[in-house]
Design a binder for these strands. Structure first.
Length: 567
RNA sequence: CGGGGUGUAGCGCAGUACGGUAGCGCGCAGCGUUUGGGACGCUGAUGUCGGAGGUUCAAGUCCUCUCACCCCGACCA
């Protein structure tokens, strides 16, 4: 490809809208251009990278016995009604809906469980056909409330999504690690370090799932890691050792005046007790405004995802003052004692320890010596606490670390959630019809591209890993007014291509500075320079993008030199 | 959906307090000189100042409405 005719130009200045480094570089290096919020075009350079990423995913999926196929982006609403997701609160408005000219309700696919399960119902009859895995590399559309960070969080994106079908859970359990390993291979081959963590399965449902997280301050997820024992988990799901509050002889309930102490910190200090001897009340409401009272030991915080899961996955928001008033709760002094009209979900941290301080449901007053279950009852006791940096690991007791990460891939054991609803069954050996047991596996291609840049750049630009670089060789000719140089560069360009290299040839009439800066920005692994100077020595100047040194290589040795780089 | 911000040439920005002929840098086109880290000179083109109303002799600037985009939060397979 001659740079003089490449569609898409590099930008010298950072576009004002881009804050994230991968966003800035993908715009400046002419990989992508924005069309609307969270919707991008890929320019030729970006598309070449994306295709390389896709090819790596394809090879790893094929190696895991996957069969590539393609399913539509536009899907009938009835498929989504069948699984209940059309009307469910989640995904809700993220599922873009519209009508075609025949007034049929349609959606833009945000994932393909519905379509693939319907296909499986059609095509799979017998256990003899199982297990199998199909995958596609296809556009998804999710009408996110807010896109951000360039390609990191978008509305329209290309995803590699795979679906496996099994006779039973044991078969899925056996297959799942192969995909897990394939994912590790994919990220490694793409030059990104991704950490697999245990994850919450969210609206996808299912029994187990893992996310592949790329460490980045930009990340929207928090991971909890234990360096000591290797426990790695999304904070949404992380468990930790909570320890126990003090236990002593149970004392009689006592109401005390605690003016101006609407926070745990304040009331603990006022009464001279540790925070872990207090009970904290947190209120969240469902979409209908019904208040949930979450009760947890004062030194811990509520994890909204765990709380939501404890309630069967309902959507929750922080309760408004109005919602609290309606059920007679005094914010800041709320008490589990005598509370009515709300569901009380308690963290298991309050089942050990005695004589806690809790609110009196009256401004300016708390209760001392509150004991469960003597003084109050709850609807459910479970783990609803969020793990924080420094909390002890539940498995080994060592301190946990919290880090930010970008979710680059996600694998789920779905079980029969979709197949049962769609009626996708097969006949087992014993002649009985059983729902297919499913797994699903996704990686966002564009997000992965952004992650690659996040982890592979320097102050001058992108430093592509060889595996995904848009071209292998960036050929720079200096002195385009010198016919001898032009001729030599043209010959080298043709020769490199004839032996199979992907070459970006900077044949523009630009100064050396412009050409070198663009080469650094675009980040192709090998830079070859041809000039009057190199020709005098019948050599080519060679430089690797990740290395500062340049090397003169005799023209006759160039091919051998390149072989060592791409070996 | 709440809070904050920005829309002026392809990109980055000034001009808006106080209304009076729309500017700068880069980029782009032509000519010439340059050619190893974002060269130089000369000449030139490009704007419905996001949009619609309004006030005024006169609006990029004032008023009203509206749209788009960015950031924080809510949300998120």
């Amino acid at each position: 490809m001659r740079l003089s005719t490449l569609f898409g130009r590099t930008l010298r200045e950072v576009p004002a809208d881009a804050e994230v480094i991968s966003h800035q570089l993908s715009l400046r290096a002419a990989l992508i251009r924005q069309v609307a919020a969270g919707i991008y075009s890929y320019l030729p350079l970006g598309w070449r990278v994306l295709r390389k990423i896709e090819q790596i995913m394809r090879e790893e999926m094929d190696a895991a016995d996957g069969q590539e196929m393609s399913m539509p982006v536009v899907q009938p609403a009835e498929l989504w009604r069948a699984t209940g997701r059309y009307d469910a609160p989640a995904p809700g408005p993220a599922l873009l809906r519209f009508k075609d000219r025949g007034e049929h309700e349609m959606v833009l696919g945000m994932t393909h469980e519905e379509v693939v399960t319907a296909l499986a119902k059609l095509e799979i009859d017998s256990y003899r056909q199982l297990p199998l895995m199909v995958y596609q590399i296809q556009t998804k559309f999710r009408d996110e409330p807010r896109s951000r960070g360039g390609l990191i969080r978008v509305r329209e994106f290309i995803m590699k999504d795979g679906y496996s079908f099994h006779t039973d859970a044991a078969s899925l359990d056996e297959y799942y690690p192969r995909i897990y390993q394939a994912y590790i291979n994919i990220f490694k081959r793409c030059g990104v370090q991704a950490i697999p963590v245990e994850a919450d399965s969210g609206i996808m449902g299912g029994s187990a799932s893992h996310e592949f997280m790329v460490l980045s301050e930009m990340g929207e997820d928090t991971l909890i890691l234990c360096e000591h024992c290797g426990y790695a988990v999304n904070a949404e799901k992380a468990q930790f050792a909570k320890g126990a509050a003090e236990s002593s002889a149970v004392l009689p309930l006592e109401k005390v005046a605690t003016p101006g102490t609407s926070s745990i910190q304040a009331v603990a200090a006022y009464l001279g007790v540790p925070e872990r001897q207090t009970l904290k009340a947190v209120f969240m409401s469902d979409p209908e405004g019904k208040v949930v009272f979450a009760l947890i030991r004062g030194d811990l915080d509520v994890n909204p995802v765990k709380l939501s899961n404890a309630l069967g996955g309902v959507e929750l928001h922080a309760s408004t003052a109005e919602e609290l008033k309606r059920v007679g709760i005094v914010a800041g002094y709320a008490s589990p004692i005598g509370v009515k009209n709300v569901r009380v979900i308690a963290d298991d941290s309050l089942t050990s320890g005695t004589n806690f301080v809790a609110g009196a449901n009256e401004a300016g007053y708390h209760m001392k010596n509150v004991n469960y279950p003597r003084d109050f009852t709850v609807d459910l006791v479970t783990d609803i606490a969020i793990a924080r940096s420094g909390d002890p690991c539940e498995r080994c007791g060592q301190p946990l670390q919290a880090k930010r990460g970008i979710e680059a891939g996600h694998v789920f054991k779905l079980g029969t959630k979709y197949s049962a609803k769609v009626g996708a069954t097969f006949l087992d050996k014993d002649g009985s019809a059983k729902p297919l047991v499913m797994g699903c596996y996704g990686i966002g291609a564009g997000r992965l591209l952004a992650c690659i840049i996040e982890q592979n750049h320097d102050e001058r630009g992108i430093v592509w890993p060889r595996s995904v670089a848009p071209f292998q060789v960036h050929l720079v000719s200096l002195g385009t007014n010198n016919p001898v140089v032009v001729e030599a560069a043209d010959v080298l360009y043709q020769k490199l291509m004839s032996v199979g290299y992907e070459v970006l040839y900077d044949d523009r009439q630009e100064s050396a500075g412009v050409k070198f800066n663009d080469a650094d920005l675009i980040g192709i692994p090998v830079r070859l320079t041809i000039s009057k100077r190199t020709l005098e020595k019948t050599s080519v100047e060679c430089k690797l993008r990740w290395d500062d040194t340049v090397e003169l290589v005799a023209q006759s040795d160039l091919e051998a030199w390149l072989v060592t780089i791409f070996a």
